[in-house]
């Protein structure tokens, strides 16, 4: 289980996160709602080891994630699919995926099995396996980004704004894919501005504002909460 306690992150004098508390239980999809600049990406970067924390703790099944070493976090079952995807545009789709399994580089047969599973999960990628990742459509690139994170065989998937810049129909496909991943037993922490779609597949949710958690609750409670409805659902 992911346990974030009193986590703070500073950029110089600016407090990007102030004492965030959050949990993700095994098998859950937890959505993190928040506007631009609320601190969602900072939280994700900290959980994946790209950003150092200045206070508090974040652990996955008891292992500290605030190491500042992404390779450690990936190897311990926490993989991130970042905002903006950060693919390797000139490398083929398959090479992007194989690099996603970099932490399992000594386990070639395991990676081969995982690759086969990924192609079952994202059949649209099979015919694109040889194409440069940068040549794919936005939705397909998002699939590659999720698939690349899954190649690390994570127990916890950190998904940062997967719907950004995608057409509604494609967003739906992406969220269906997330749900399939979750059905396979991967816990998901999902940051979204597209609150409606995200809440649709989530078990629980948190609202992050100005670097602090201001609201949390199960899916139904958030869906019907007036503040959430006016701020994030636009109704």
């Amino acid at each position: 289980m992911l346990e974030v306690r009193d986590l703070s992150v500073k950029y110089g004098h600016f407090m990007a996160l102030r004492g965030v508390n959050l949990t993700v239980q095994p098998g859950e999809i937890v959505v993190l709602l928040g506007a631009n600049g609320a601190g969602k990406s900072t939280l994700f970067r900290t959980l994946s080891g790209l950003q150092r924390s200045s206070g508090g703790s974040a652990t996955w099944n008891g292992t500290a994630l605030t190491t500042g070493r992404p390779e450690f976090n990936v190897a311990h079952g926490v993989a991130q699919c970042p905002e903006g995807r950060l693919l390797f545009p000139d490398l083929s789709v398959e090479k992007n995926l194989r690099l996603g399994a970099f932490v399992h580089r000594r386990d070639a047969s395991g990676t081969a099995r995982e690759l086969e599973r990924i192609y079952e999960l994202f059949p649209a990628l099979v015919e694109k396996r040889g194409a440069p990742a940068g040549s794919l459509s936005g939705g397909q690139q998002q699939m590659v980004a999720i698939a690349r994170a899954l190649m690390a065989r994570p127990q916890l998937l950190l998904l940062d704004e997967p719907s950004l810049g995608l057409a509604p129909l494609v967003v739906e496909q992406v969220f269906q894919a997330v749900q399939r991943v979750n059905n396979d037993g991967v816990s998901v922490l999902l940051a979204e501005q597209n609150a409606f779609a995200a809440l649709g597949i989530a078990h629980r949710g948190y609202v992050l504002e100005g670097g602090q958690i201001t609201l949390d609750g199960p899916q139904q409670a958030l869906m019907t909460d007036d503040r959430v409805r006016s701020a994030y659902l636009g109704v």
Binding site: E71, N73, V74, Q80, D90, R105
Partner: peptide
């Protein structure tokens, strides 16, 4: 080779390379 691919990956997206666990 995978090691060679890490060089190309890092030159195409340094942050993405760190994210998949490339040192």
């Amino acid at each position: 080779t995978l090691t060679g691919a890490t060089i190309e990956a890092m030159s195409q997206n340094r942050e993405g390379a760190r994210m998949v666990g490339i040192n």
